[in-house]
């Protein structure tokens, strides 16, 4: 059970080997987390992460499950397996691909791949997950969105569109689950220097995996609906959102 101050005892992390997922897991196992399900494409990478987490919190129960976000047919069975050992207090949706904007905008198959992983795959997993949580009467879903979901940008609109879809879906899901005992928290980081962003140039107000993890834990404590990382992005985006397009288009972002 989640306690009064937002500490969770069990969690499922989708995309469990991502840098942000790992940084978050580290913080959770140092707190009250005792049972963790890590899911991702590569079981070896997950097991390596699990070993590191076990070193931090000996005795923790960690299971690693293979998950292919685009293998939609497998998702219902996957969710059953994830809940097999009991309630989950937290489900963190942390998987995603950035794609390559300049190539993908001329390659429909690659563009579809980004959308299917980040949006369709997440929806396909969130639908059965939400039902499980609604049944257990408690829980928190944390969805990693991005500031890029806030307004379309020339430099990453395919990724942005996929995350915008996920962000909107999650907002509606949060409203649908209101009063069910299940909360949905949306996390919108700015540019985060992680293995996903790799060798891209670092823009202003960039963040990193550990800062995002800290913001997630803080958001759980505060029962936040939406978390921006860094926090001031909320105000920056509320201005950028209203800039006229001719001006927005010329901004170096």
């Amino acid at each position: 059970m989640k306690n009064a101050l937002g500490s969770v005892q069990s969690a499922l992390i989708l995309g469990g080997d991502s840098d942000i997922a790992f940084a978050t897991s580290k913080r959770l196992v140092r707190d009250r987390l005792r049972r963790l399900v890590l899911a991702g494409r590569s079981i070896e990478r997950l097991q390596a992460r699990a070993a590191e987490l076990e070193a931090i919190a000996p005795g923790i129960d960690i299971r690693c499950l293979t998950l292919d976000a685009t293998d939609f047919a497998s998702h219902s069975e996957f969710v059953d397996a994830a809940f097999e050992k009991g309630d989950l207090d937290l489900v963190l949706v942390a998987f995603g691909v950035l794609g390559n904007q300049l190539e993908d905008e001329h390659d429909a198959a690659s563009a579809i791949g980004v959308i299917q992983t980040n949006f369709t795959g997440a929806v396909s997993l969130l639908v059965p997950t939400a039902d499980r949580l609604r049944d257990q009467g408690h829980g928190t879903i944390v969805v990693l969105s991005t500031v890029a979901a806030e307004r379309a940008r020339r430099s990453n609109y395919i990724y942005g569109a996929s995350k915008a879809g996920l962000d909107w879906f999650s907002q509606g899901l949060g409203d649908a689950l209101h009063g069910s005992g299940v909360d949905v928290m949306i996390v919108r980081p700015g540019f985060a220097t992680t293995k996903m962003t790799g060798d891209l140039d670092t823009p202003p107000m960039a963040t990193d995996a550990d800062s995002v993890a800290a913001a997630i834990v803080d958001g759980l404590r505060k029962q936040s609906d939406v978390v921006w990382v860094p926090g001031k992005l909320r105000w920056v985006m509320s201005v950028l959102r209203h800039l006229p397009r001719p001006i927005f288009r010329r901004l170096p972002i």
Binding site: M1, K2, N3, A4, L5, R134, G137, H138, D175, A176, L177, H178, G179, S180, G181
Partner: peptide
Amino acid sequence: ASSHATADSNTALLSGWGRTSPSRA
């Protein structure tokens, strides 16, 4: 009024006196 779309007459979102971590039953 409480706007719980999921609410039906037989279930309730319950918390203790501290009003922290409510759950539905």
